[in-house]
């Protein structure tokens, strides 16, 4: 009780001494015109030397609708350069197609069989999240070599070495890399190890790819 009385007197003394304390401050002047509503960052403007992937010749890239939002994508050519080059071009086309379809991300469907030996990537929500994992974008291939009449196929899931590793590039007369994707909208599922944010993939690859011939 004594303490309360003391505090009351303390407050009274404080009020008396600093009679400015509880008074309303004079109203603040209105903020400068830019203060309340400064413009958002300027949107991207067209750039003269913006990166551009050269157009592909007819037959190099095909996208076949598969289901409501899916596609079967094929990149074909005759002059084999490297696995990396061709697969990156296919991934860039997948991203480009996704954005053309107003999608924000796509999932890559691995073409696996019961005989495959390479383990499938597993979903782990507690693991680091990604906008893309290029290592998991693994198309399947078919190819023909000089003098051969039939196509041969190669799958990255069998565990076998890449078909071109033991062949001279000039001996490969025809090749196709193919991938199935599903175009998706909305927030990306970044715990999906086969999920790819289309814009991020496009940004990464646009300066790196060109269509095969």
């Amino acid at each position: 009780m004594k303490r309360s009385i003391g505090m009351v007197f303390g407050v009274a003394a404080f009020c008396a001494l600093s009679s400015s304390s509880f008074a309303a401050d004079p109203p603040a002047p209105a903020p400068a015109p830019g203060a309340q509503a400064s413009a958002a960052p300027a949107p991207a403007t067209p750039v003269a030397d913006a990166p551009m992937v050269p157009p592909a010749k007819p037959g190099v890239f095909t996208a076949t609708k598969k289901g409501a939002t899916g596609y079967h994508l094929v990149v074909a050519g005759h002059k084999f350069t490297s696995r990396d080059d061709i697969e990156k071009y296919l991934a860039w086309r997948a991203a480009d197609l996704t954005m053309a379809d107003k999608g924000t991300w796509f999932t890559f469907t691995q073409a696996r069989t019961a005989a495959d030996k390479v383990p499938a990537p597993k979903r782990d929500p507690a693991a680091p999240r990604h906008s893309f994992k290029m290592a998991n974008f693994q198309p399947v291939w078919r190819y023909k070599t000089k003098g051969a009449a039939d196509w041969k196929s190669w799958s990255p899931y069998t565990g076998a070495a890449f078909f071109a590793d033991g062949i001279k590039a000039e001996d490969i007369t025809d090749f196709e890399a193919s991938a199935d994707i599903v175009v998706r909208k909305g927030v990306m599922d970044d715990a999906d190890p086969l999920g790819y944010e289309a814009g991020a993939v496009s940004d990464l690859l646009i300066n790196q790819v060109s269509p095969p011939v």
């Binding site: 507690a126 680091p128 990604h130 970044d190 300066n207």
Partner: peptide, 12 residues
């Protein structure tokens, strides 16, 4: 944007 995404642990 020109680099691979190394991945980031996120809040679950």
């Amino acid at each position: 944007w020109a680099a691979d995404d190394p991945g980031q642990p996120q809040v679950t």
